[in-house]
Design a protein around this nucleic acid. Structure first.
Lengths: 110, 110
DNA sequence: TTGACATATTCCTGTATGGGAATATAATCC
DNA sequence: GGATTATATTCCCATACAGGAATATGTCAA
């Protein structure tokens, strides 16, 4: 069995760096495809393909206006990733405190 | 060009569901490989392979004790994912407020 | 040394990939 | 209709994958 499809979930879709770039670019406002092409400096077919993946997993929404397609990031679809990574938060959050602990532990044996 | 290697970064490593399961299992304490095999009900070679990927990207640490290898999640390596997803937070956080806004906007035209 | 236990590696294979190039579809304007 | 603009799709290809099966490596114990 090969790797799970990029369109199988948000985790897989987001593994591709260009797709992350696109999501970041589309987060504050909807943009036509050509805006993405210009700003991220990518070939247009490549952008269209990435957008298709993002659309399939619900990470972006589209709206047609004339011959332009306006894409926009759907932040809700990113939330699960944030929540999953967040379950590890308490294990890094007090890092400073732990560094201090370790430093103190290292002091004591003196 | 094929998909980026699973070992190229944490995003790619974490795209695999079993690897996420392993990370969750190893977050609170270190465990020998066989514990993972038993608890997650996976073939041992499969677990070893996943651990290798996680190790290469720094998502786990290892310690040898006799013939056992104790693995533990390195939460710090997950932090960047949490931070990246967090850049989208303000676009979902006030969802209730926005639903309200939309509802009110829909009311007005009346 | 031999055997048992714990883990890692190798070999195999079908499959999905991302990029490039070319082309197709769709909408607008004259 | 024909030309132009905007976007999507198709075809080709080298590559890396995850799973299964078998085997290798490493460590301890008797």
């Amino acid at each position: 069995m090969p790797r799970a499809s990029t369109t199988s979930d948000a985790f897989n879709a987001v593994a591709e760096p260009r797709r992350r770039d696109i999501l970041s670019f589309l987060v504050s406002q909807e943009r036509p495809v050509n805006d993405i092409v210009m700003n991220l400096n990518l070939p247009q077919p490549s952008v269209s393909k990435h957008l298709r993946v993002l659309l399939e997993v619900g990470l972006v929404d589209v709206r047609r206006e004339g011959r332009q397609m306006f894409y926009r990031t759907n932040a809700d679809a990113i939330k699960p990733l944030h929540e999953w990574t967040g379950t590890f938060e308490r294990f890094w959050r007090h890092q400073l405190a732990r560094v201090k602990e370790r430093a103190e532990a290292a002091e004591k044996p003196k």
